[in-house]
Design a protein around this nucleic acid. Structure first.
Lengths: 123, 123
DNA sequence: CAGAATCCCGGAAGATACTG
DNA sequence: CAGTATCTTCCGGGATTCTG
């Protein structure tokens, strides 16, 4: 019943790993999620995410842009304005990430209980 | 059509992030994937994954065990034997991870092309 | 406002050696 | 075989400062 629609065996598992390395990155996920609500400006994202340094946000956005998940649009005004928006590819990522989010939500308590029990047993 | 079954807005996005921090971990993913094929011993996993140090594999398995995704069974024989196996929770994770794997597979070329173009433009 | 540049530190992770 | 222990190296990432 939990049979995956795509089997693990039969293709290079490392590819999944490398994609998760990007997608699973803490800030990248949050950016993709928040950009799902529409285009955002730099500081707008920074405020929404909260706890991210401008350096990390810059690097994260750069990485997402490089992978074709996000577009960067500069308005040559004063003060400058830059909009970030998901590409079609970026939007298509929301679905599988959302599935993982759903899993996280469904099993969060289970995981936390397991951690507590494990930590208690190990002292 | 790409409408997610679980919306991003409406629950704490950081939870998804924290789960991805574990699940998205390079070695954790690979371990879960390989254990999907049935119970494995330590060095068996090490050989299958390849490129992982015994230290990292130990830490990864410990983390997965702590989260209740993997069970560790010790056979008090000489030489010692330890089997690692996915729990029900661990098996349930395969489905959403597989979805992400499918996405990775489907868009790999697109991503690589985007990276190449980006790197070329940036010099 | 949106970044670039610089400094700096703690933790992540490899290599190696030892053990029950 | 399945780890633990130790050392060391590396770099992710925060804080701060400067610019177009």
């Amino acid at each position: 019943m939990t049979a995956p629609s795509v089997s693990y065996e039969g293709h290079d598992c490392r590819m999944v790993s490398s994609v998760l390395a990007r997608v699973g990155d803490k800030w990248s996920v949050l950016v993709v999620m928040y950009l799902g609500g529409g285009p955002k400006r730099f500081n707008e994202l920074k405020r929404m995410i909260g706890g991210v340094s401008q350096r990390m946000l810059t690097l994260t956005l750069r990485g997402l842009e490089r992978d074709g998940l996000v577009t960067r649009t500069v308005f040559p005004t004063i003060p400058p304005r830059v909009d970030y928006e998901l590409t079609d590819l970026g939007r298509s990522l929301r679905e599988p990430v959302s599935a993982l989010g759903g899993w996280a939500q469904a099993h969060q308590d289970e995981i936390e209980a397991s951690r507590a029990a494990f930590d208690k047993a190990a002292g």
